[in-house]
């Protein structure tokens, strides 16, 4: 295959038992949207082992700062100020530099800035609720935001989403494409949420719960949460030298 830059040499198969299955009836929206057939295995090829590269010049200086990136001059978003940071790495713990991390979330009242969200809590005029950042050479990323609130959702009579931040990650290969949600340590709604509990393995759920990171907290300014993101890694380490540099 012909590309204008090398993609990954290979990718390990995805462990589908680690991800939520398509059909999780307690999460009602999955009932009519889950494919009935098993996924057809399509070994990674050149085209899915590469993907578009997003350069740092794409981003504005405040794209990663949700506290100010939609606020009027001199204003800031309402809510507990937090820093969310971590690394994008692969399954072999290698850093993934240049990964595009895009986030979106509800505001401190649990309301989304979206034309389809009609929840009672008010819109914050100074909060858009989205941001984006590109990981550095060591895979590190961070964004500043306010802690979102839980909110009710129409999965039945009385369902509440735990506070969460949606995270979309673009690594180096189209086959690594991933969307997930980050939760906050200590939230009692996590164990009650059918979306979270769609993940079969409790140890997998644990990886989505960001712990408070006191060391990264900025005194008198903002608390910090740590969230590392693991993308699919290489299938083999047999040819370390040849496969390095991805």
């Amino acid at each position: 295959m012909s590309t204008d830059s090398p993609g990954l040499a290979d990718l390990a198969p995805r462990d589908l038992t680690w991800h939520p299955p398509a059909l999780t009836p307690d999460y009602r929206s999955s009932r009519a949207r889950a494919p009935g057939h098993k996924l057809l295995s399509l070994p990674p090829s050149g085209s899915t082992l590469c993907g578009p590269v997003f350069g740092h010049d794409l981003l504005g200086p405040h794209d990663h700062d949700l506290i100010v990136n939609y606020a009027a001059p001199g204003e800031t978003a309402i809510g507990p100020r937090i820093l969310v940071h971590g690394r994008v790495i692969d399954e072999d713990a290698r850093p993934v530099p240049g990964a595009l991390v895009e986030v979106w979330q509800a505001n401190a009242g649990g309301r989304y800035r979206h034309r389809n969200d009609t929840y009672l809590a008010p819109i914050d005029p100074n909060f858009g609720g989205c941001g984006r950042v590109i990981s550095d050479a060591d895979g590190r990323y961070e964004f500043r935001t306010i802690k979102p609130a839980p909110y009710p959702w129409p999965n039945g009579v009385n369902f509440w989403r735990p506070a969460h931040i949606h995270i979309s990650v673009f690594g180096h290969a189209f086959a690594q494409r991933l969307i997930t949600q980050m939760y906050f340590e200590g939230d009692p709604l996590i164990r009650l949420c059918p979306i979270v509990q769609a993940i079969p393995d409790p140890t997998a759920v644990d990886t989505l719960i960001a712990p408070l990171d006191m060391e990264a907290t900025l005194p008198h300014d903002m608390m910090a949460y740590r969230f590392d993101i693991v993308l699919r890694g290489r299938a083999s380490t047999m040819f370390e030298n040849r496969m390095e540099g991805n």
């Binding site: 991800h19 929206s29 979206h114 389809n116 991933l178 969307i179 949600q181």
Partner: peptide
């Protein structure tokens, strides 16, 4: 070294447009 596990997926939800 033991391999890490991929971060598990969660639905994009109804408000994916805000972010993407």
């Amino acid at each position: 070294m033991a391999k890490l596990k991929e971060t598990p997926s969660q639905t994009a939800g109804p408000y994916v447009h805000i972010g993407l």
